[in-house]
Computed example of a mutant assay.
Amino acid sequence: MPAPSAYITGVGQSQVGTKLTRHPLLLTVDAVREALAEAGLTVQQIDGVATYPGRMAAYLGYSPVGADDLIDALGIRATWYLGAAEITSQLGAVVAAADAVRAGHARHVICFRTVYEAAALSRPEEYPPVRRATVDGFSQWFAPFNATSASSWVAQYAMRHVKHYGLTREQLAQIAITGRANAVHNPRALVREPLTLDQYMSSRMISTPLCLYDCDRFTDGSTALIVSAGDALDEVTCTPVRIAASAGTVEKYSWDQAEWMASYPTGADLWKHTDYKPADVDTVQLYDGFSFCVITWLEALGFCKVGEGGKFIEGGQRIARDGELPLNTFGGQIGAGRLHGFGFAHEAAVQLKGKGGPRQIPGDPRVAICTSGGGPLATALLLARD
């Protein structure tokens, strides 16, 4: 008897911007309604909800909406739901939903991620920032050195590639340049202007070797995916995309001197759960909260050897929308906005459904990889259109 399958059916996204005034719960509902409309489903057919990391009262800009908020707002009768940070990064919520429908705990699960960081920072009276008298937890080891941003932590891994493998800024620039070029064709992208190599090279340094354009920026918006059971596909009207394989890793959540970023074991593990090979992949949507994360994912997934990521993307032709391995065709987080992982799964589904419009890659794409995280925790999904 074949194993039960899980599919991404409807996908949706709200308005994306900075300093939005629409309430984050309403942005979430907007994204969910779009996903429902594409799938041809009603709220009454939804029996599961999953999100990452759940509502965070201490930092509402980072995560203002929890699974229970959406259940209440839409009147969902959930037989299974999840809202927690203790999973293998953002897309771990999609993996959990897939496991739930395969196990028969639900038939159609809404997965969503809502961010409101730009708006929250602009309205501190509504979203007061956390003020602490003491520093504890693993922050106590970073704060004294003013290393409070993940840019400082990722930069150390990037500098190892510079020193050991010869990674150049000109090579690294291709991630941001490619993302911005693709974002031009995405009507919802945060930045719809191309980026030149000269602009990149002359921008201010954030944490060597990462410059301003190597970093995503705070964004407001919501992304929703519907994960459906294989035996429930007769209820949907859109093209389903099968979750063919997944993998995830959590290692050194504190970032405390981990030898390699979690993308490396995750990428290797993904191929243990499928007969597909890297050569079968038509497009990759790889987490680029910082551009160097993409280098690690390309190496981890076997598209090139460890240390050869810079050479693999040199010049940008290979990863262009019409190249050998189209990358972040919606702009990635650098171009389209920091939707925190879920934008990559959304775009992978859009491309496999052939609904990319001006940014649709040539040919007939059938296999895609999307990822989230890559620091101390990481998730990878292999999607296929049967």
Rank of each mutant, 00 (worst) to 15 (best):
P2K: 05
P4L: 06
S5G: 06
S5K: 09
V16S: 01
L20W: 03
P24W: 04
L26P: 00
L27W: 01
V29C: 10
R33E: 14
E34H: 11
E34N: 08
E34P: 02
A37W: 02
E38C: 03
E38P: 02
L41W: 01
G54C: 10
L60V: 04
G61L: 08
S63G: 15
I71A: 08
I71V: 14
I76R: 00
T79Y: 06
Y81T: 05
G83W: 00
A85T: 06
I87C: 04
L91S: 08
G92H: 03
A98H: 01
G104T: 10
H105C: 13
H105I: 03
R107W: 04
F112A: 09
F112P: 06
Y116N: 14
A118S: 15
A120H: 06
S122L: 02
E126T: 12
V130K: 11
R132N: 07
N146E: 13
T148L: 11
S149R: 07
A150R: 06
S151H: 02
A155T: 05
A155F: 01
Y157P: 04
Y157S: 11
Y157A: 13
H161V: 07
H161C: 06
A173P: 02
R180N: 06
V184S: 04
N186E: 12
P187A: 08
R188G: 12
A189F: 00
L190D: 07
E193M: 09
L195Y: 01
Q199N: 08
R204L: 09
C211D: 10
C211P: 05
L212Y: 07
D216N: 14
L225G: 06
S228V: 12
L233I: 10
D234C: 08
V236T: 15
T239C: 12
A244N: 03
E251T: 12
Y253Q: 11
W255H: 13
M261S: 06
Y264L: 15
T266V: 08
A268M: 10
D269Q: 14
K272C: 09
H273N: 13
T274N: 06
D275G: 09
Y276D: 11
P278N: 07
A279P: 07
D280A: 07
V284T: 13
Q285F: 08
C293W: 00
W297T: 04
A300S: 10
A300H: 00
K305G: 15
V306F: 05
V306S: 04
G307Q: 05
G309K: 03
Q317H: 12
L325H: 03
N328M: 04
T329W: 00
G335A: 10
G337C: 12
G341E: 10
V350M: 07
V350Y: 00
V350I: 13
V350G: 00
K353R: 15
K355W: 05
G356E: 01
G356F: 00
P358T: 03
R359C: 07
Q360S: 09
P365K: 06
R366V: 13
A368T: 04
S372H: 03
G375L: 14
T379Y: 00
L383C: 07
D386G: 13
